[in-house]
Design a protein around this nucleic acid. Structure first.
Lengths: 212, 212
DNA sequence: AAAAATGGATAGCGGTGCTGTCTGCTATTG
DNA sequence: CAATAGCAGACAGCACCGCTATCCATTTTT
């Protein structure tokens, strides 16, 4: 298939596809002539993945490039791959007092130790969590109870996630599932949480939902 | 306090504070002269909230403005306030086939009905969830099992969230807690989930973490 | 032979979150 | 009382990001 059909089958405009090619988000097609290339289903799939990571996962182009490069490496390393994605999921942190972050970082480390979590000391998620805790503190919220509850929930969810990954069978599929599940999972969880919050709120405060 | 001290106490540059004033993210200071204004602790607090919603919550300025405006209204309506925040949490959806979204929307509606969730039919979270499901489908992932598991987790988490909100006491504080808890909660949960994923992955695949 | 499409290169665009500069005034300092 | 520094408000400009538009030489289709 040529670029027009690739565009038609994915809904991505031709100039955008060319841009992704330039940015290395999409491997070049097989050249049949100096200025003619052929694309296949793998390009369709990859293109869809890029759009989903962009639009739903809200990852920046540069992060997606790293993620895809790691996905394409012969010897898949799930931890490394997902390490790329998380830092960009938590934005600028220069609004937060570094001292507070350091204190909260210790709290996270203590939590991980106490719960026996086998997590690398340099895992980006540790720092990310500390930064969010610091943000809570900046706005004057006490999260001590919530943190432990969320940690419980995170354990449960991570178990589900690993089941999801395990269902994929082959290693490449598992890596793919880990990426998709982690990035899109955040969004899915957020949406379901909002729905459940509305329900719980209606239950607790006796406000009848609009319907249903 | 004048603008320089406000800047010093929050770490936000003076021109940026002026920008937030222009954008209506920060109420004007009390004018003591035609060109002199005084700010107080409420401005400090508000400014910190803005930065946190921007940097951690990654909400666009326009959304933050709506959110704050709703926060400042005399008669607080939690549902309405959080309705503002969610749409922006899921980005562009034009990469997803609308037909698929419609099908997934039915699935979400069925799920909500089956679980007895009292959620408005027009709640943005329903649509957001449907879009994420459609995204999963676009990349060829089967989420049927995961969806139910996540829904379970969402119920649990929403319960924690409502406890968190309830701890605030007065209505204004509860609204504030709902906003902060919802927006920052997403990020905290994501970070803890990543940590727990790494732990579960190490457990399941026997890969020893770097340490700990 | 004519028209349409292609790969590749380059320049520009629209939105967002600031940042820099200016003006006319006010507060502080020596 | 002058000199200096700081202020509010207005406005233009900037950096980055994710595209989009244009052009060219070549190839494919009609």
């Amino acid at each position: 298939m040529r670029i027009a059909e690739l565009s038609r089958r994915t809904g991505v405009p031709v100039p955008t596809i060319k841009y992704y090619l330039r940015e290395g988000l999409l491997p070049a097609g097989e050249l049949t002539s100096p200025n003619q290339a052929r694309y296949d289903d793998r390009h369709v799939q990859r293109l869809r993945l890029v759009r989903v990571l962009l639009d739903i996962g809200r990852l920046p182009i540069a992060t997606i490039r790293q993620l895809l490069a790691a996905l394409d490496e012969p010897d898949p390393d799930v931890h490394k791959v997902l390490g790329h994605a998380l830092p960009s999921a938590v934005g600028n942190k220069d609004s937060i007092d570094p001292d507070v972050v350091r204190r909260e970082r210790e709290r996270i480390d203590e939590l991980a130790l106490r719960r026996g979590w086998q997590v690398g000391h340099d895992a980006p998620a540790r720092q990310a969590a500390a930064e969010v805790l610091a943000a809570f503190e900046q706005v004057g919220a006490d999260v001590s109870t919530l943190l432990e509850q969320y940690a419980d929930a995170a354990e449960t969810i991570a178990d589900y996630d690993l089941q999801f990954v395990g269902r994929a069978g082959n290693p490449e599929g598992m890596l793919y599932a880990a990426v998709v599940g982690s990035i899109l999972g955040d969004s899915l969880l957020a949406a379901l949480r909002r729905m459940a919050q509305e329900h719980e709120s209606a239950k607790k405060f006796g406000i009848r939902g609009d319907d249903c």
